[in-house]
Design a protein around this nucleic acid. Sequence first.
DNA 1: TAGATTGTTAATCGATTAACAATC
DNA 2: TAGATTGTTAATCGATTAACAATC
Lengths: 217, 217
Amino acid sequence: MDPNKKKISIAVIKRLPRYYRYLYDLLNMGITRISSKELSERMNITASQIRQDLNCFGGFGQQGYGYNVESLFREIGNILGVNETFNAVIIGAGNMGQALANYGNFEKRGFKIIGVFDVNPNIIGNKINNLTVMHMDKLDEFITNNKVDIGILTVPYDQTPVVAERLAKLGVKGLWNFSPMDLELNHDVVIENVHLSDSLMVLGYKLKEMRNKENKK
Amino acid sequence: MDPNKKKISIAVIKRLPRYYRYLYDLLNMGITRISSKELSERMNITASQIRQDLNCFGGFGQQGYGYNVESLFREIGNILGVNETFNAVIIGAGNMGQALANYGNFEKRGFKIIGVFDVNPNIIGNKINNLTVMHMDKLDEFITNNKVDIGILTVPYDQTPVVAERLAKLGVKGLWNFSPMDLELNHDVVIENVHLSDSLMVLGYKLKEMRNKENKK
DNA sequence: TAGATTGTTAATCGATTAACAATC
DNA sequence: TAGATTGTTAATCGATTAACAATC
């Protein structure tokens, strides 16, 4: 590894999509330049943090001027890889799987769903957003014949580790996991866990906290 | 505010649902006691962090013994409020709204969906998981007549701030926002943003990073 | 040139980890 | 009692914020 290039922390990476969204909005508003100060006010973070974050990847700004919205938008897009295409398969065509398959916005960001799989005979053969739900038996063949970068896991709890292992063995390098289970494989596989019920429970906690505060008044 | 009780950081809160899940699994495995060391190995975090986290809320353990799985599970559940009931309405019965309405697991954690709303005449009147989709015109009346704690926002981008404001004005204190937009209201409203495309973009970044590493070898 | 704002170094803050006395 | 493991304080680490020289 390049010893000069110090590792960029995950905290920074997680902020990039947010910058990207704000810049997209600015672009649509016809705003062509923005200073870190102005952006910091809109985003409710410090200007210092913005400059630190961006300078992890290079000097995108210009002293005395600020940042060009369009070029900064493009740069962050490049860092995030929105111009590359990532092919994904959805495993599990239940409620969540179907919702994700039907959601068109991912494609705009370079994520293309090219296959949907399930084991339920009542679902197999159904069309979801122009894709025919296939039986899991066809998974190996499909992945062998198609470049699949990402597996989207919307399977029942107990199936999650099994399917994850299977995908990893087939060479799928990225997993987007919707099961309430933390996936961690030792292989060279990157994982993003989306724990909806965790998020909901945090909301519940915050609500309780607020109620307590109200009652104390 | 109580000055003795120092504020518990959001980082700690966010780990609680994860502890809760692991303890639930341990309970199902018939394991009755666990030390922070053992749990740390399972969860891949430090034992020190576990003890620090838990001691934000009280001494749940016993020296020389460790933690009783069942009682720790119950304690964390109490902190998170799984025994309280939170009533929620879903605004936007599109793909995501329907998926969330159909997902039964939230109810187990005390979150009950009692109403689903939309503006699309083709959807209104449909049954989703025993709930009839209502027109947004009925929202005010519904919230006035029912205790609604949480608004689940699965509406299109441009509708998000409008609906959020409307819910806040009607006295809904918690918002679970699925729009790719950061909601922040000044009112006494707590918000959890779920940004699926942000998460996907982070996965894309990680994938790109891994590819680069592979190529360097 | 003067003013503005970056890039970057230094200071601060908070979160994580280590250590160990207390105690079951 | 001896061994184990907590609760808690202290040390470390990393991330955020502040400050300012560089420069457009």
